[in-house]
Nucleic acid binder design. Structure first.
Lengths: 338, 338
DNA sequence: AGCGTATGCCAAACCGATTCGTCAGTTCGG
DNA sequence: CCGAACTGACGAATCGGTTTGGCATACGCT
């Protein structure tokens, strides 16, 4: 079957009895080609399994066909803050969207070797969780590499292209849900507010408490490891006036909170309700499944690639923001029997 | 400063007063060029900041310059079994090694869209944790894409190119260490033996116990979530004849074991020693730091890329295996005060 | 009929590198 | 002193596409 070499445009031209030029025009809807000729060429190309050589394509188009996906090397905790499952949903979706558009999504190297970035002439970059006024973003843009961020550079939200969840809305929805479910006193296991998402969530929580005349009840968990959530939750639960519900951000933290409740002999949800903002498979599968806002990471990844491609096309010449809605997944951890 | 266009080989040729051919020969040490001419050309190229255009390069060399890094889509639990921090150390190192050799490491899309793989004409692929007789590997090789696996396809270890840790040795070293440290009865929180690493580790544990005339004491934890490790450890600790040491595999599982010990009111290491085979930052930073075998994931990633490049060069025409040594990191969890 | 214009297709140039074959000049051996 | 062999450099072809400019032919209009 295999003809050794894969068919090129000249093979299609030969089979159709026309010139390479005409084949190119037909395939790209560019020049003037008679409709029936076009049809014939398309049919033959399809039959031969013709796929344009990407190198040759990129050579003429002065592109590389490469998009990078990476966290900011300016971040001292590279990629570490990301929820695993969140990233593992986002990255393949982004990769798939890029491939469909003829681009390849490359994994960014670590920040230690910035000169390698230059060697790879990227057409564009996707940066997750930028820091405020992130210098890396500025440098990329200065070099002419268009950037789209996942999460905002909070200092420059008006001047940059970004995709994000509405985390204030998501957090508020979680809090409202917990309140309706019967919670009286809601604690928050928070991350250090370094990225836009943690800033938004903390803000939403503080506002929500303030609206109820309640003081914020926050314990900070450094890192996303379950252990950090475990200990932060323990501190909340050991306090004199312990909460009857704890909300938190990442999947790992929520699992830590749940283990802390078990350790203290608290029943979930009877004695303590638990809810998270970022859903993940671990929450649905947990022994007692945990309510969470599903941020739709796959959609975020796809949307980010799409926005980046629009920048490359020139279809989005000025800063633009895309907000992906989240969906509350109500599970056992907040379903209190009456 | 920026001249608009970056310098091409003709710019170098013009500046040096020679032909493009000579420049090419000088830069690649190919044809016959007088030493002083070569020096002059190299100097000028350096000064101009010349970097060959990768598209043009790949076009002539009939390559794409793309290597994929992905887990096997045949695996029903894609990438999920990987330890996060393990992957986050491995991937950037692999990416860096690829970039240094002029290749880009692309993120594989999910298994749902296999036709996209074909569109991307890979020069080679890195597959983590293949399943036994993995059909995806076979398919890739059939299509002419050289593959190197991280971890072995246990059924075809003789016929494939792979990079792996010596997990039998690592596990045995951990067990020996725990015994010397004073453990009398060692339990094992294991993963389902689906991949080569979990198979090796289980085998090593069983052998070690057998050599001591002891029955294996194994609890299986599904998935790498801390929660699974927590519950598996609880089962071990609730048994009539509870172990005074627990070894396990991944970082997440070890943290779960530790939380289980805390919950049961057991002191680490006095009442229970804990050790893992795959080290990670969470173990070093844990409240009570945990002993573990550091598998050097960055070295694994680098070695895998190197082996793949050797296959591409033709320098490794027949199946070859590379074993990366591990290092035991002794920490508080096994340092029992006398 | 004559002229201008639109249509359908193609030849050639181009993108930026490598590589093959050639050529002029030098060195060496007989 | 002459031819062979070697040296250093170059022109042109090549990779696989796109794009520009041009050339026939057909058509419409006066």
């Amino acid at each position: 079957m295999e003809q050794g070499r894969r068919p090129g445009i000249r093979d299609v031209a030969r089979a159709a009895g026309v010139s390479r030029t005409t084949v190119s025009h037909a395939l790209n809807d560019k020049g003037r080609v008679a409709p029936e000729t076009r049809e014939r060429i398309l049919a033959i190309a399809e039959e031969l399994g013709y796929r344009p050589n990407t190198n040759a394509l990129h050579l003429t188009q002065q592109r590389t066909g490469l998009l990078a996906l990476t966290s900011s090397p300016s971040d001292p905790v590279p990629l570490g803050l990301l929820d695993v499952d969140y990233f593992l949903a986002l990255a393949p979706a982004a990769s798939e969207a890029a491939l469909r558009a003829g681009y390849a999504l490359v994994l960014g190297p670590t920040g230690q070797a910035p000169e390698l970035w230059a060697q790879l002439r990227l057409d564009g970059a996707l940066i997750t969780d930028p820091l405020p006024s992130d210098p890396f973003l500025r440098e990329l843009e200065r070099q002419g590499t268009p950037v789209v961020t996942l999460g905002r550079d909070v200092d420059r939200a008006q001047e940059t292209w970004w995709v994000d969840s509405d985390l204030v809305a998501a957090m508020t929805e979680v809090l409202d849900h917990v309140e309706v479910a019967g919670a009286r006193r809601v604690g928050f296991v928070a991350e250090p507010p370094r990225h836009s998402y943690s800033i938004d969530e903390l803000l939403a929580y503080e506002r929500w408490q303030e609206a109820r005349g309640a003081a914020p009840l926050v314990e900070e968990a450094a890192g996303n490891h379950t252990e950090a959530g475990f200990h932060a939750a323990q501190r909340l639960l050991d306090a004199a006036d312990r909460p009857d519900a704890i909300v938190t951000t990442l999947e790992g933290l929520a699992l830590g909170v749940k283990l802390a409740a078990e350790t203290r002999g608290l029943r979930v949800p009877e004695d303590l309700m638990i809810a998270a903002v970022s859903d993940g498979p671990g929450l649905a599968q947990a022994h007692t499944s945990i309510t969470a806002a599903d941020l739709a990471p796959a959609e975020l990844g796809t949307a980010a690639v799409r926005l980046l491609l629009e920048r490359l096309d020139g279809a989005a010449p000025t800063p633009r923001a895309v907000v992906i809605p989240s969906v509350l997944r109500v599970r056992a951890s907040t379903r209190r029997p009456r």
